[in-house]
């Protein structure tokens, strides 16, 4: 039997894991926010900072992996605790990916000169706001464990897809108007795609939290995906 003392040290270890997850999450939220700000304001200094900051998340993920494995080996956790620990490993991997996506956006700042129409930048900002709201809501659910709020997170997913599809169309229009737009708009397109992917990782995290709390897989609801594969602009021939 474990003594009371050991049990509470064990609790401390579990708490430490979730605290590190939250700190990583906060860091990733900040990185994405700043990457988008750097893109919209063409701020190369800020972009560099974001690229540097990514190291913190790589380090965070390694630490959580190590700690989690040590806990599993030493404590041989059962049921709830085991889900908590495995969940931490999964969530930190998703957060680390979010950081990578933020970094990718920051890297593209160098290739965009800010002369593209304002509406594109506003669109990217709006897309990023949706993705960041989703990430924030998910990490808030991690704090509160109120999984009944996860439904709202899914609604956001649809909004993000719709927004991405619309931006995609607008970017295509500019590229067709003037070939000189093709290079910068392609970079913006990748930025938009990266931001949209952040939403996917937020959804993954939501699913993991649902599993941690309930012990069940989140019920699947509908087929995912944007509609950009179907977009055809007037005057072009649909690809077969």
């Amino acid at each position: 039997m474990q003594s009371v003392h050991i049990v509470s040290a064990y609790d401390e270890e579990l708490k430490y894991l979730s605290k590190r997850i939250a700190a990583m999450g906060g860091h990733a939220e900040r990185m994405v926010e700043q990457a988008v700000a750097a893109l919209v304001n063409v701020d190369h200094g800020l972009a560099q900072k974001v690229i540097q900051d990514d190291l913190v998340l790589d380090e965070g993920q390694r630490e959580i992996d190590d700690k989690a494995i040590i806990i599993i080996a030493r404590r041989q956790p059962m049921a709830t605790d085991l889900r908590e620990i495995v969940g931490a490993i999964r969530i930190s991997a998703d957060i680390e990916r979010v950081g990578d996506l933020g970094k990718n956006v920051a890297k593209r700042v160098a290739s965009v000169d800010g002369r593209q129409p304002n509406s594109l930048f506003r669109g990217i900002e709006a897309l990023a706001n949706l993705a960041l709201t989703q990430l924030k809501e998910v990490l808030d659910v991690y704090a509160s464990r109120s999984v009944e709020r996860i439904g709202l997170v899914r609604d956001r997913d649809d909004q993000i897809d719709a927004m991405y599809t619309s931006l995609f169309r607008e970017l295509l229009t500019y590229m067709m108007e003037d070939p000189r737009n093709i290079t910068p708009c392609t970079h913006l397109l990748f930025c938009a795609k990266n931001i949209e992917r952040i939403g996917d990782h937020a959804t993954n995290i939501a699913e993991t939290i649902y599993y941690i709390v309930t012990g069940e897989q989140m019920p699947a609801d509908r087929p995912k995906g944007d509609k950009t594969d179907k977009i055809v602009l007037p005057g072009t021939v649909p690809a077969k």
């Binding site: 708490k15 979730s18 605290k19 939250a22 700190a23 999450g25 906060g26 860091h27 939220e29 900040r30 990490l139 808030d140 991690y142 704090a143 509160s144 109120s146 709020r149």
Partner: peptide, 15 residues
Amino acid sequence: GLAPGMSLSLKFRAP
């Protein structure tokens, strides 16, 4: 989404 018993460091994640 604040509640007694919740961890502040989980809720206020900004560095």
